[in-house]
């Protein structure tokens, strides 16, 4: 049997990146900015909001991370990474100038073509604000291509809120309708940040045109059911509710099997699924 197969790019060989800056977003989430060590290579790396990359640390391993930067801002790749296991512990030890590998981008990402001209509701929970930042920045960078932009963000507490200075500043912006909340304890931020679950913020969401609106949700697994329930109250069609999900993966190319849900691979057919998918694949959320 004879096949034509591409010699380049090799799917499983990472592009080497260099850390150019990093800062702590919370006590256990750090923000990293990366550029390719061979700078011409970034030209080959285009991506969509909602896609992810396999981050590779030789000697420790690989893991998938959502891209946090906007594809409209070329050349720099940003990630918000929570320290939670073997690989992320090692990543937290890295200094500016240190190298790591990136493979990808993988996954479907948000269907930007379908979202053009539409009103967009974004609902983020906890670390879900990391992948949704890519979408948020992309929409802000191309503001005239979209309708209303409503952004709801809930974190566990004040200290766990990602990009807090950015968000509190954005509250003044006329570019979006932004509402922030924490599950408990908003002391010192009473004017900017509510107290209560993210679902409480839907009281600010009104005059939704269900035919012309797309909702994008990302957060911890427990959040999806309650948030989707709120969104359904606006009579949005089920394929206009988009959920950005997380699964274990080892390849990103639909081969290693770990991210499979029924006949869909999270790395190929996701990580952005519609609520219609969720109804038909019971393991999804």
């Amino acid at each position: 049997m004879k096949y034509e197969y591409k010699k380049e790019p090799e799917l499983y060989t990472p592009i080497m990146m260099r850390i150019i800056s990093k800062r702590d977003l919370t006590s256990d989430v750090r923000f990293f900015q990366l550029v390719p060590t061979e700078e011409y290579k970034h030209l080959n790396l285009d991506y969509k909001p909602g896609q992810f990359m396999m981050l590779s640390l030789f000697g420790t391993g690989e893991a998938p991370f959502s891209i946090s930067s906007s594809p409209a801002r070329k050349g720099i790749f940003e990630f918000a990474i929570r320290k939670t296991g073997k690989i992320t512990n090692k990543i937290f030890e890295l200094k500016d100038g240190d190298q790591l590998g990136l493979r990808g981008p993988f996954g479907n990402g948000f269907p930007i073509e379908r979202m053009l001209g539409k009103d967009i509701i974004i609902v983020a929970g906890g670390l879900g604000a990391a992948p949704l930042r890519s979408l948020l920045l992309y929409i802000l960078d191309n503001r005239e291509l979209f309708g209303r932009l409503i952004y709801l963000y809930g974190a566990r507490n004040i200290d766990d809120m990602l990009y807090k200075p950015d968000f509190t500043e954005m509250l003044q912006s006329d570019q979006l309708e932004l509402h922030l909340t924490v599950d408990k304890g908003n002391e010192g931020y009473e004017n900017e940040i509510e107290e209560g679950l993210v679902t409480h913020l839907f009281k600010y969401v009104s005059d939704i045109d269900p035919k012309n609106t797309i909702a994008c949700v990302c957060g911890p697994p427990v959040m999806y059911k309650s948030v989707v329930k709120e969104i359904l109250k606006y009579n949005l069609e089920k394929d206009k509710i988009l959920l950005n999900l997380e699964r274990r993966m080892k390849c990103g190319t639909g081969k290693c099997g770990h991210c499979i849900i029924d006949y869909r691979y999270t790395c190929i057919d996701g990580p952005v699924f519609t609520y219609w998918d969720v109804i038909h694949m019971r393991e999804l959320i």
Partner: peptide, 21 residues
């Protein structure tokens, strides 16, 4: 396996061996 390894992305590690079988 041929279908699986050539759908969406082609897995070169597989293909290199498949051509030799």
């Amino acid at each position: 396996l041929d279908k699986f390894y050539t759908t969406d992305y082609v897995d070169n590690y597989y293909m290199k061996r498949r051509e030799k079988l």
